[in-house]
């Protein structure tokens, strides 16, 4: 670099370097978008997002496990005693009234994935027990013993008939 170059020129050069770097950086980031997005669920996976279930075969006290988005969903036909026990408390770790977790008190629909590490809890006694790390849930799918931080998720669903529900759409 020669002596007679003025500071104004270096300023301009620095600006050009920064501008080029910024534009190049934005370009690289934009080029990453399709690659990152390609790892998200594809259209056929998204198409599985809705499951229709016929409830007529589930007797009171019975449980059916159906697959929704590849995840197990527990559908419980609760007995009056189970409903009574569930409405009596609000849960301990993640308090929530039973009425907010069901649309009809005799039908409980919850995603059967432990909110701790994603294992499938087993139906044991009243409620469920997860054998991976010992979490327990009551008959409303609310966590009663950790390490799980949250209640079993209630998926979006709605009744299309008295004994038919669609899971995946509220």
């Amino acid at each position: 670099m020669t002596e007679n170059e003025s500071p104004a020129n270096t300023g301009r050069r620095n600006f050009l370097i920064k501008a080029t770097t910024a534009v190049g950086g934005v370009g690289v980031a934009a080029a990453c978008v399709p690659f990152v997005a390609s790892m998200n669920p594809s259209s056929d996976v998204l198409a599985k997002a809705v499951t229709e279930v016929d409830l007529s075969g589930i007797t009171p006290g019975g449980v059916r496990t159906v697959a929704w988005q590849g995840k197990p969903v527990f559908i419980v036909h609760r007995t009056p005693e189970e409903i009574q026990a569930s409405t009596a408390t609000n849960g301990v770790i993640d308090p929530e009234p039973d009425s907010q977790r069901v649309q009809k008190p005799e039908w409980l629909v919850v995603v059967g994935v432990c909110t701790h590490m994603g294992c499938v809890p087993n139906k044991e006694g009243p409620g469920w027990t997860c054998h991976c790390h010992g979490s327990q849930y009551d008959d409303s799918g609310r966590v009663t013993r950790g390490p799980a931080p949250k209640n079993l998720e209630v998926p979006p669903y709605h009744f299309v008939a008295d004994n038919k529900i669609i899971i995946g759409k509220a």
Partner: peptide, 17 residues
Amino acid sequence: VIWLRGDYTVGDATLTR
């Protein structure tokens, strides 16, 4: 989690990647 698996659960997309 869904992005890593490419599905709502560990599935075909997860296995291939």
